[in-house]
Design a protein around this nucleic acid. Sequence first.
DNA 1: ATTGATTATTTTGTCAACAATCGAGATGTG
DNA 2: CACATCTCGATTGTTGACAAAATAATCAAT
Lengths: 230, 230
Amino acid sequence: MCPSGETHVDRIFTVLEHDIVSGQLAMGSKLGEELLASRFGVSRGPLREALRRLEGRGLVIRTAHAGVRVVALSRKALLELYEIRELLEGLAARLAARNMSEEEVASLRALLDEDLNSGLRSDAYPLVFGDADFHYRIAEGSKSVRLKQLLCGDLYSLIRLCRFKTAHVPGQMQSFRDHMRIIEAIEDRDEALAEFLMSRHISAARARFLTTPFNEASDAVDSLKEAGFA
Amino acid sequence: MCPSGETHVDRIFTVLEHDIVSGQLAMGSKLGEELLASRFGVSRGPLREALRRLEGRGLVIRTAHAGVRVVALSRKALLELYEIRELLEGLAARLAARNMSEEEVASLRALLDEDLNSGLRSDAYPLVFGDADFHYRIAEGSKSVRLKQLLCGDLYSLIRLCRFKTAHVPGQMQSFRDHMRIIEAIEDRDEALAEFLMSRHISAARARFLTTPFNEASDAVDSLKEAGFA
DNA sequence: ATTGATTATTTTGTCAACAATCGAGATGTG
DNA sequence: CACATCTCGATTGTTGACAAAATAATCAAT
């Protein structure tokens, strides 16, 4: 029933995590236990445990006797995430310039060159994925397990959760040029420059986000909180 | 049976979290379900859910059909944590200098003055608590809920987990002087200085940690990992 | 005596049923 | 008509039992 070690909880956790960070489950959605359990073809027990794991990672919020909902990130929370990510991605770039193997550097360079050829003509969608991949590899290359876990597992997930709404079409070219400069710094093993460029890269993304209208429901959440209802 | 909203899972989670970060549960300890369930006077269901929450927060590690153990932090992992905390605590100090209310600043100042009077004569133990309280208030004063959650909930917990072993008796006076300088910077609303001082404060702690012999079992874990057994 | 396979026991994973709690709609009252 | 209360339905919290897997113990063979 459980092929090769993977338990039901693991499977459900993975699927739900993906559905949340990919935006298929809207922020604030209620996750009824009975419904989800039947959808996954399991009992409520394993499902609840998977939800508890998501709760521990801050992707869902459970209120006693009321059920669990997908976390609703307010504009303020998003800005906090960007502020943190600005520092941590910078650190990752610095460590990557120090610790990445030559093979990893070459592979990343190849990835960027490929994006340059295929991504320029078309829409922004492949660039979004390319962007995710780029940052993922930097985190990987930092050789810091905890840092990679923080950036890829927690922070980046939550940001991507909202990125799908705020189309960041403007600035995609600038973003790509940032990436090019960053990998040049890494190739030169210039730690300080890599950190600076990456920090500024995130800072620019935050600034771009700051100017977006942000017509989301989370604004309503903010209003409620400010009014003292939550 | 459940007085006012707090469910069994919440209670167990809180107790276990405290027991882990306070060192009462040694790193790598196995947490048998049946035993713990009887100790808490509940069934295995809620206990497992609490463990799943801890798993999501990275405080325990579960291997399928083998049980859950308290996370064993290697020396390398500790250093990674210090590296991250250096940046994040600096950010917290900068934001605290910007966002802390006058009351919070005054209260923090009072706390330090009190420590100065009561803590100088005696052993280092109250200073450890004072240190935790100091950093907690800075994180709180940053007014960034995510940052506070990261520092207090995850990073600081894990570091305190090992702090109890590495007696940081040397440098306690220097640490206290650092705190004094930091609050002065916050009182002056000098964001850059507060960030710099706090970063250096953590950096010094890391350097101190780096020179400790570290006679722990996690070294064995490191050796095993390097040998490719895990 | 050590190694290997095999059984036994313990521990974990899952399930279905029960109890407790909350929310919505109905009902009665000012 | 507004408002408070009550009842009922639905959802969550908890439990004990059962199935599956892994560790521990047993024993035979070299």
